[in-house]
Every structure is written in structure tokens, then in C-alpha cells.
Design a binder for these strands. Sequence first.
DNA 1: AACAAATGTGCGATATTTGAACAATGCCCA
DNA 2: TGGGCATTGTTCAAATATCGCACATTTGTT
Lengths: 263, 263
Amino acid sequence: MTKDATDQWYNPRDVSTTLVKGFAVLSAFDDARLRLSLPEIGQKTGYDRATVRRLVITLVDLGLLAKTDKTFSLTPEILGLAGNYLRGHGIGTTLQPILNSYSERIGVEISLATMSEGSALYIARSHMSGSAVSFGFTVGSRLPLLHTALGRMLLGTLDPETAAEHIRTDKLIQYTPRTLLAPQAIKGEIQKARAQGYSVVVAEFEPGVAGLAVPVGRLGTAKAVIGVSGPVAKIQEAETQDLYLSTLHICAGEIDRVWVEGV
Amino acid sequence: MTKDATDQWYNPRDVSTTLVKGFAVLSAFDDARLRLSLPEIGQKTGYDRATVRRLVITLVDLGLLAKTDKTFSLTPEILGLAGNYLRGHGIGTTLQPILNSYSERIGVEISLATMSEGSALYIARSHMSGSAVSFGFTVGSRLPLLHTALGRMLLGTLDPETAAEHIRTDKLIQYTPRTLLAPQAIKGEIQKARAQGYSVVVAEFEPGVAGLAVPVGRLGTAKAVIGVSGPVAKIQEAETQDLYLSTLHICAGEIDRVWVEGV
DNA sequence: AACAAATGTGCGATATTTGAACAATGCCCA
DNA sequence: TGGGCATTGTTCAAATATCGCACATTTGTT
């Protein structure tokens, strides 16, 4: 029962072009570009200046963009929509306390991610006393699938066909000197993760940082993964790794049991 | 330099109707409605079934909605957009550590909110060890302006005209037996908050819960407020209230200094 | 199993979007 | 400081996507 591209239940011509363009404009405001002018948005999206103007005006009218001077930027309004998701799926009330409690136990932040549009997307992250937000990675951040523990575990829980597809088509970027680039090697790592029920990735995405991840739910049906990351030396230490992994497994089990609503 | 409705720099006919409808469909998925069928969305938005179908198809195509069986629900994809805002404005890296540290000091969670579309919108919330997420209120949640400490402080920092406007037009809901309903009384409370530089609201929104709030930045220019909430008895205790308020003021000052990028 | 009700889809009329042409603004240099 | 040039903003008729009716299909009920 593999999910082909053929379970397209709708006709592509029913996709509203204007709506797609509107979101393209919103997405133009990524990390790097905090404020954009109309021409800049036009360049980034490839739409005509007049089109961009119309779309931006609409987004301002909706309260999603704010105009200051001649540039535009995102407003917190978008958080309202995200909040609808978080509350609706009980992330804050159900998931967060579980992550927090296990996180406290091992003294490391635990993150939950799912697959979204070709990357691993952080959905929730445990809170820990004292620790500043380690890196810029927070809820809503994306990680590559091929070179992170979370990503490889996600690929490992899907049917092999999808994983192979990603290995074949995703662009391979050498993030660090240790980044695996050989497709066969990556495939092997994903199979290993699948077989042993967890994944370990050492310094392939960020130098000096290693990650561990385990699936939430059974292989194949798992729709999310949880994981931790830390200094290479610490993660590679056998005792520490065992502690982390067993904690993650127990945590994953608990999440699986209470988290009925899926992602 | 009050902001009238007349600084409409664009012609309303330049607002793209399709894009507006698309967001209306997305917004139909609020707390109460986790899964919606096409007819339900149609009813909630008031659009024709065929229209809703095309819009929903588009949103599925964009990865923002997922179809299961005959109903649709939000996907975590929306968190990606929210993440763009959070990262772009340095919420996670700049704001969060400050909130966490002061929060730790007084043992109570501190929240930051701004005004958005007629309500107070949570933008960030401190993390605290041990404490479960108190209520369902998390980032992206909305609070009424008139009957919460955060809301009244927000109104107090704006020009009096806008505040008056809200008192006049917003629907007055009796959330609790203690909810103020007389417009004059509410107006007085807001003026008081403005005059003294902080607001105190006792059990007007949730029974047994009181809140404190102070502005971030100078009055009039403040674009955000921070606050705490807790059991009525605790907040009303003079010593505790003093401690909370002075901490909030210092915290607000620090945020104002480092948080250059505005909301 | 047959009926009824509710939901999904093709198609022409209509309103919206498009982009090239025009206007306005800001910028650079003499 | 003023004039010319480049960049950005706006208008409007042509082109296109959208709307909602009417028909097809599915689902639930007696």
C-alpha cells in the first residue's frame, strides 16, 4: 500500500493559482530576508510587479504583513494560525509536558519533528531550566532529511520507496567535512536506523554536534520522531548514549499512547 | 499623529478576493474545529461548495491541509511560516532567554503579547522547569483586550482614541462574575494602567486567576507588553505583587534595549 | 434494495487578474 | 541646485481564472 504520486484525487487545474502565489509571497520572507520591498518580492517569486503589489496589498489587508516605509515584514498574526494548529492538536497541553519531563530527567532538550515538504520540521521542543535556546532551531525550523538524526529516522520509518526517492532527488550538500555524500552510504545508514530502531548521526550537519533519534509509534506507521542532540564527545560516550536512547524510547512510547490525534 | 482609518494607502479593489477567501478557509480551523468536511467549511465561511472545494484543494496541494477520509485538518506546515517570523524577529534567540531568566527568578511564567486584529496575541512565553503548561494558552493564543491585564495594558499604551474605539465597539462578554461590563469602569481601569505604568486585573477573564502587565518601551510607542498571571490570592498579596511588578519592569527594560527589530 | 439526502464535478457567464504602457518618485552628477 | 536617468508605483483593456448553477455520484436510511 505504497503511496504513489497517483493518489492525486484532484485535478491539478483545480488548484487556485492566486492562492498559491499569495503563499509564495508569504514564504519569500524567510530567515535571511526580514524586510522586503515590492521589487525584491517580485524578484524572489518571479511574479510581475503589479501582481506582487496586489498580493502584498491583500496580505497587508489581512494583517499578515506590515508596511513600514517602503518595505514589508511579517506580523505576529501568522502565529495565530500556528496557534490554531498547536492547540487543535494538543501539542502544548499533551505533548509538551511529556517532552519536558523526560528532558528534565536526562538534562538534554528533546525535540519532536515530522516530515513536511521534504524536510524534517520541528513541531515541539522540550523546555529546560537554565538553558538558553541552543541554536537558532526552534519550533517551525526545518532540518535536512538526509544528514540529521531526526531526518534519517523519519526516512527509516517510511516505506523504503519514499526514502529512496529522497536519496535520489534531494540535493546533497556538504554541510561539514563529515557529511556523507555517497547515496549508497546514506541509504545504508537509513536502513540501519530502520533495523535497530534508532539513528545516530555525528557531525554531518553541524560541526561538533551529534544527534540521536527514535520513532514515535511503530515503524511504517510512525508519523513523527523525537531526538536529542549535543556535543559529539558526549553523544558518542557509550553510557550516555544508552541512557539517552532508552529514555527516548520510553518517551516515544508514552507520546504514542496519549497522542491520539496524530500530527 | 493618530492613525486614522484614512491612512489606507491602497485601493480596496486591489485586494485579491481569492487570497482572502483562502485564508478564511484556513482560519475556519480554529480550536473548536479540528477536522472539517467541505460542507462544514462552506457553512463556516459562507462560500459556495464548489469554491470551497477549489480552495481546499489548493491548500492541500500547498501542504497546509491534509485530507483523511472525508475531512481535512491543518498540517504542521503552518509552523514553518510561523517559524520564519519567530526566527526573523529573533524571538527565540533574543527574547526567550530574557523571559526565561526573569521568570526563573520569580518562579512564575512571563508572557509577551502584542496587539493583533483586535486581541492580545501571545508572541512568546517563558519556559519554566517543572511546570506543566498552565492552561491552554500558548504562543499564538488570543486574549480579549478589555478584560485581561495584558489587553488593558496594551490599550493603555496606545493613543486614547484607539482604546476608546475598542471600548465602544468590542463585544462585552461576562467571562466571570467579576468581569467589568460598564464601559466607563473599563475606561477608568485603562487610564489607571496608563497613569501608573502597569495594570492589574483580578478574575475578570478566568475565575480565580489574576494578572499583572507592564509595557515594553515607552508609553505611546510601546508595541508590546509583558505580564504574569496566577491565583488571585497570590497576586493580590502586596509583597508578591511588588516583586512581580518590579521584576517585570526590569525585564521590560532589558527587552526594550535589545529588541531592536520591533514586532 | 430502492429512495432520499448530501456531497462532488463539468461548464458557460462573469468578475478578477494580468502585464504592458504610462506616471511618479527618488537618485546621481554636473 | 537643477536636469536627466533609473527605479518603483499605478492604470486599464485583454486574457484568464473563478463562480455557482445544474447534473452526476456517493452515502445513509427505512
